[in-house]
Amino acid sequence: MKFAYTIIYVDDVPSTIAFYESAFGLTRKFVHESNLYAELETGDTVLAFAGNEEAEMNGLAILPNDPANPPSGWEICFVTDDVGSAFKQAVEAGCTAVSNPNEKPWGQTVSYVRDLNGCLVEIASPISTDS
């Protein structure tokens, strides 16, 4: 077994992809012509978005992500050496700030934002392993 995908169900796949490009500096791998599925270039573990209606088509039921309600109980975390700049870029691109970058007792700098769909995104520095 291998962890291969994180797929987030969203209202509007193309605008979410565009948002992730401008807010987090990622690039798109592909957007399906139906506009109901797209992947970002994230290496071995794919971050993908699917239209909310895909859930219904697959017989699933989900609680749609919504900026006006509390976020669902999970987050995605991006790691960068320059948390301050990444946080600033994300907020300028339209993310809602949840907590500003601050240094944790274990030496990691951590910040949180919510994306255009209300999903929780952590922007943090890597945890140093050689201390």
Binding site: Y9, N52, E53, E56, A61, I62, L63, P64, D66, A68
Partner: peptide, 21 residues
Amino acid sequence: LEALHVSGGRMRINTIATMAG
């Protein structure tokens, strides 16, 4: 309507109302 379909009819009306403003 979309919220009800996507959630299999399970989303609470108050949550939907908040969402719709």
